[in-house]
Design a protein around this nucleic acid. Structure first.
Lengths: 224, 224
DNA sequence: GGGATATGACCTTCGAGTAAGTTACCTCAA
DNA sequence: TTGAGGTAACTTACTCGAAGGTCATATCCC
């Protein structure tokens, strides 16, 4: 009787793994890899730390499994949208819509994807590279189309705009996560309005001079 | 002679503090608060760990000093630009230009501002709140102006667009930091081209239906 | 001598990871 | 039917190392 209730549960390994994985996704996605503790995740899952190690090998192994689950879920959704026939800004909007709906039941998956405290070497880095490529490819497609349309063929411009687009998606999702109660549908409408607002925005009259800064620039009329 | 060269330097406290602060800014800004070690910073500064504690009290105290230095530098630059008479997108461009120039000699200051691994309570949190307010205020001004122009008066829309704008600035600076050799002037030109590209982008034909996703949307002509 | 500058060696805490043993269940021979 | 033995599930109690933080002491200059 010394080991309280050791071995009394007898839950099949696959079930336990899923149970642990779910807890891990939530904890890693909420606190980040670095601040999460294996003991904490085990407690959340209702089991003890060594069982986690028996099933996942290490903290990194557990994170890898969580990351793969989350990244696959989100990448698959984005690819599904990309396979539709929408183009340009419309496609961007559909992507956002799909992400909002996918994330609604498990919002923490998003942070899992971009966790800056995750290990930057080993298998985790490799997995992240794979999914980053998959996701970036989609963004690059959309941005490339837009750049072609506007007549800008500088590849660095396209690269930078891709970064901006992905960052905007991140910002919108983060904003949404910070505003519970807003439904995916409402959020998609909001994104639509914002795109309209941005498209209608002004262009500067001319490039700022390059020298030392500080020089005033003439007011431009607001519609280019 | 047991304590090698203890006390032999005799460098005035103010000088040493600056020297330590510089090293700390670079390390904290590069690796983030969590991954940085006080011993490492001390080594970089060419002195020993206890001296850091004698002058800054704790790792958090050292970070606070670094953060305040970096945040003040950047906030001051943004406010300087905001005080100019440029408006709308032009003002955004000038802000970016100012940031590129300010960050050129010490690019790591940027990451210092948004370090997600920094402590989220105590004096550090308070300082971050102060600077976040100062910086956000500037973004809110610019975005509010744009929203008024377009006729969108939903405050949540403005809040979300502010988040997007700040995130875009972050993305552009991060992209720049990842592409050494690009000068601030070149980068500002790039931002200008990107704004043109975005402004010229397409509008979706209509809002996606709200129900279950999955429905195709008619191709829209690309210029709204 | 006294105060400022400076350090090697130490203490402490926390969390990753492990060793070793416990319980339950399943199978199969007698 | 039963009970011996094998195996999967499970836990308590530990080791170990990294990093924050402290103490006692040393050197230098006025």
């Amino acid at each position: 009787m010394s080991r309280a209730n050791a071995g009394t549960k007898g839950v099949p390994r696959a079930d336990r793994e899923l149970q642990i994985l779910r807890a891990a996704c939530e904890v890693f996605g909420t606190m980040g890899f670095a601040k999460a503790s294996v003991a904490g995740i085990a407690a959340d899952a209702g089991i003890s730390k060594p069982l986690v190690y028996q099933y996942f090998g290490s903290k990194e192994g557990l994170f890898l499994a969580s990351f793969n689950y989350g990244a696959e879920t989100l990448a698959a959704e984005m690819e599904r949208v990309a396979a539709d026939d929408s183009v340009g800004v419309e496609r961007g909007l559909h992507t956002l819509d799909g992400l909002f709906r996918t994330l609604e039941p498990q919002p923490w998956l998003w942070r899992l994807l971009f966790d800056p405290s995750a290990p930057d070497d080993g298998e985790v880095a490799a997995a992240r590279a794979v999914y980053t490529d998959r996701i970036t490819r989609l963004a690059v497609e959309g941005v490339g189309e837009l750049m072609r349309l506007v007549g800008d063929d500088d590849p660095l411009d396209a690269s930078a705009l891709t970064a901006v687009w992905m960052s905007a998606v991140d910002a919108l999702i983060t904003w949404w996560l910070d505003h519970p109660g807003v439904t995916p549908a409402q959020m998609t409408e909001r994104c639509h309005r914002l795109i309209i607002a941005i498209s209608g925005a002004a262009l500067p009259a001319e490039l700022p001079a390059e020298g030392g800064g500080r020089r005033p620039v003439e007011r431009s009329s607001l519609r280019a």
